[in-house]
Design a protein around this nucleic acid. Sequence first.
DNA 1: GTCTATAATCAGATAGAC
DNA 2: GTCTATCTGATTATAGAC
Lengths: 198, 198
Amino acid sequence: MPRTAEQNQRLKEERRRALLKAAREVFARRGLAATKMTDLAAAAGISYGLVYHYFPDKESVFAALVEEAVRGGIELLASARRRPGTPWEQLHYVCTRLLEGIREEPSIPLILVQAHASESVPAVVEQALDRYSTQFNRHLEELIESGQKAGQIVNVPATELARTFLATVQGLALTQIFPQLRKTPFPSTDTILRLFKP
Amino acid sequence: MPRTAEQNQRLKEERRRALLKAAREVFARRGLAATKMTDLAAAAGISYGLVYHYFPDKESVFAALVEEAVRGGIELLASARRRPGTPWEQLHYVCTRLLEGIREEPSIPLILVQAHASESVPAVVEQALDRYSTQFNRHLEELIESGQKAGQIVNVPATELARTFLATVQGLALTQIFPQLRKTPFPSTDTILRLFKP
DNA sequence: GTCTATAATCAGATAGAC
DNA sequence: GTCTATCTGATTATAGAC
């Protein structure tokens, strides 16, 4: 009965996703080290032991989430570059989407913040971050340089602008953790893009 | 012999400081949960048990460091406001000092990032962060509003500007942890202050 | 004051019943 | 597949020798 096996496979995939979703919320707010397997189980509404049915260990759950977030970030930038429109419009799109993400679903960017925030992170995670930093930065710099050639972006070294932009975005995600700060008004795309104005 | 007692007191104070300094480096890069007492002892060059001679537990060491960083941040802003010069010049001073700090001694700002980065932080730490967020923000907003009245700062809501600035600063500290990013050029005060330009 | 050794606790991972 | 119970190792904190 290959049908049943396939359905089972699909069900397992679904449960795995649900677990990841729950785990994302927890890791995003506590970080890798402070999160216990019990927290993951509780958040997903399953028993302690069952987590090990889906992942070999805690690090693997976290690594899967980092992988996912990295993919999403790089994909966002790539899709922006494929868009019609000027470099400035593309940058505007990236910024808007990033801010939206941070405001509405901070867990995803926060996973990256948490991964960045500790040196004592598994090697796979470090490699994913490496890829992220390199690719995201390179694409962003290219975008900025295009904008500079078109006279739409100020003539400050692109690497400097890229790094500042990245810092702002990550910092905004970080401050979403803290309830006190989550209440203060969230900046608009236009405010953030002032950094790039000629 | 009150003299000897006093000297002892002073020596103990010194050792306590040395321990804090070593602990700061470790906590800054690993965070509270991922740091083991063995790490602190090793970093300070003392035995495991001796740490407990100076602090009752791990959390207290971290809390002391957060307290220190919060004090420093608030004091910086207060001293800037007492300075002669226009609001813009005061803001320039704050920004320069913050960037200097992040570049040369990232551990101090990183302690605040780490404290922000986990919900599962001791209550004393949370209270200190509350104070920090509230006071730092209020002073910064006042400074921004003064600058706006003087026509030196763009007319975007001060709360929004303050939050964005804080995010950028914290984000820059965060990216200092990651070796890959530490190599890319660090932004200048002028680049950061573009956010505020009219 | 400083260390090493020990006790107690806690969390990660596994085994085995249902 | 899912759970509970157990084992194992790591880590915190303490005790006691020097």
